[in-house]
Every structure is written in C-alpha cells, then in structure tokens.
C-alpha cells in the first residue's frame, strides 16, 4: 500500500478491519505487527519526522480543562514551523477568544479543535482518523474543504472514514482493508470500474451454469453470498435479457438489481463479508 505525495488517500474497511491500528502505526504510536512502514522516508518512530506530520486521533487527544487557543499556543512551542493558532481556529470555525474549556465544547467543536491541532505544524503529511465523525453537514463540508485546500497546497493526506461520500468528494486513492489486509487499492475509478457487474438477489443456491453458458466466455457468474448473485462483465441489454430469462426459467424474481459500476458502499460491504467469512473459517 502506498499513500502518494500531495494526494488524499482514504483508508476504508469494515469495523475491526484495522484502520485505526494502521493509523497508529503510521503515526508512530505503535510498532507494526509485520511488514515495514516508511513515513516521509523515515521510520514513523523517528523523532525527526514528528515536526513534519500532523495527526488527528479518533478518540481523544485534548486536555478537557484547557481552552482551544491556549492548547494550540502551547503546541506551537513544540514545532519549529507552525501556523498562527488564532487564524487556524477561525479557519475551522472556533472563536479564538472563547473562554470555554474543551470539555464544555460540543462533540463537533472538539473535532474541529483536534483538526486545528493536526494542521498547526503545517505538516507535510496529515493523518486523520475519522475526521468527519459526529459532524453536522455544514461542519463536515467546511472540514472537507479545509482538508482539500491542504491537499491543493501539496500536503499528503491519509484518512479513514465510514462516510463514503467523503471519499467520493475528496479521495484521490482508496485502499480497502479487511481483517488487517489490503483487499483492494487504487483510484476511485479503478476500484469501482473493477467491479463492473450486474448483481441481484434471488433464492439461494440456484444453478448458475445455464446463465453463464447463455452469456458466453466474457462473463462470469457467482453467488458470493447465499441469495446474492453477481454477473461480472460489461452490463449490456443482452446480459439483462439473459438474467431475466434465467430467472423466468427458475420461476423467481430478481430483487435489488444493481446495474453498472459497483458503488464504493458495495465494495466495502463485500470486504466486510470477506472478513466475516474469514473469521468463520478461523
């Protein structure tokens, strides 16, 4: 897996797939269980890399009794190069003059203070674990815009999210992981294009051989999970006719028919299915 320079790489996957663990390894918070990680050409635990990265953790990372501005002003003293704390708070929509302590801020406001802390060092590499979790639509759009501007300024960004429209709006590269392994990686177009298919629901364990035979060698038919059928290959009217005819032969209806490019959602759901099947085998 690679996170490219000056691009947004989104790390997707079902709960428990290892997204936060991956983030923690890249952020230098824990050692990799296997394989190797290089961050800006360094080991993530190397002190020399710390001033060059900004990190937003999924859980916590704020002092409950501190005010936003004083927190950023303290952090600024740790970095050789940093943004102006007041300007940064304004950018994320927090009043720099607020006397409110962190614990009295709303969840969304805390989230924005955390983003400001990650942006403070003007990092070359920005690591964001679920940056849009718990935000209202407007706050989410503002935050995505702020991230997008950083990317346009040449910052490399690795983020995790469950909000797939974040990815469709922002991500240049997508990596899908399940059970700690990369199951799909590429640009958004590559990933959804690779899933060119027609999929539909019908009673489980029907004989798919006649359908495959009628569609020819360019197509492959499978039942990835009981009652869900997939026809891989370019979706054409002839494929639709073939599916309808096959259903008619079995006396069943094709339900939940999805034609064309698979959605990102379907890719993540497939990854989750793969993960739970792998767990059952274990």
């Amino acid at each position: 897996m690679m996170a490219a320079v000056g691009a947004v790489t989104a790390l997707l996957g079902p709960n428990g797939a290892g997204k936060s663990s991956t983030i923690e390894v890249v952020a230098g918070l824990r050692a990799a269980a296997g394989g190797s990680v290089r961050l800006l050409g360094c080991d993530p635990a190397d002190p020399a890399v710390k001033p060059r990265i900004g990190v937003m953790l999924q859980q916590g990372g704020l002092y409950p009794t501190a005010r936003p501005l004083e927190w950023l002003q303290y952090l600024a003293r740790l970095y050789p190069r940093h943004a102006d704390p007041s300007e940064l708070l304004e950018l994320v929509g927090i009043d720099p003059a607020t006397r409110t302590t962190t614990r009295r801020l709303s969840g969304g406001e805390q989230q924005r203070v955390k983003l400001a802390a990650a942006l403070l060092p003007e990092p070359e590499f920005l690591i964001l674990d679920e940056p849009t979790a718990g935000l209202d639509p407007l706050a989410r759009r503002n935050l995505l815009e702020a991230i997008g501007r950083r990317r346009d300024n040449g910052t490399s960004i690795l983020l995790t999210t469950h909000q797939l429209d974040d990815v469709e709006n922002l991500a240049d590269h997508v990596v899908v992981i399940a059970a700690g392994r990369v199951v799909a990686a590429g640009t958004l177009d590559e990933l959804t294009g690779a899933h060119d298919a027609v999929s539909f629901g019908a009673p489980m364990h029907l004989d798919t051989a006649p359908l495959a035979l009628s569609l020819g060698v360019d197509y492959r038919v499978e039942e990835p999970m009981p009652g869900r059928y997939l026809v891989h290959g370019a979706p054409t009217p002839r494929v639709m006719a073939g599916v309808t005819a096959w259903c008619s032969d079995h006396g069943v209806m094709a339900e939940g028919l999805i034609v064309g490019r698979a959605s990102l959602e379907q890719i993540v759901i497939d990854a989750a299915d793969a993960q739970s099947r792998a767990e059952e085998i274990q």
Partner: peptide, 26 residues
C-alpha cells in the same frame, strides 16, 4: 506499506524548549 514525500526536513525545537513549554503548560 510505504508513505513518501519530499525530503525537506525543517529544524526542530530544542529539547530544553520543549521541556520548558510542557512544564509551563502543566
């Protein structure tokens, strides 16, 4: 997994400054 970017490393803040900043914060 590889994460890469331009190798322009800024200087760092001295340990004494970091310790004093954090002590004042505490």
């Amino acid at each position: 997994m590889t994460v890469s970017a331009s190798p322009t490393a800024p200087a760092s803040v001295s340990a004494a400054h970091r310790v004093s900043a954090h002590a004042r914060w505490e």
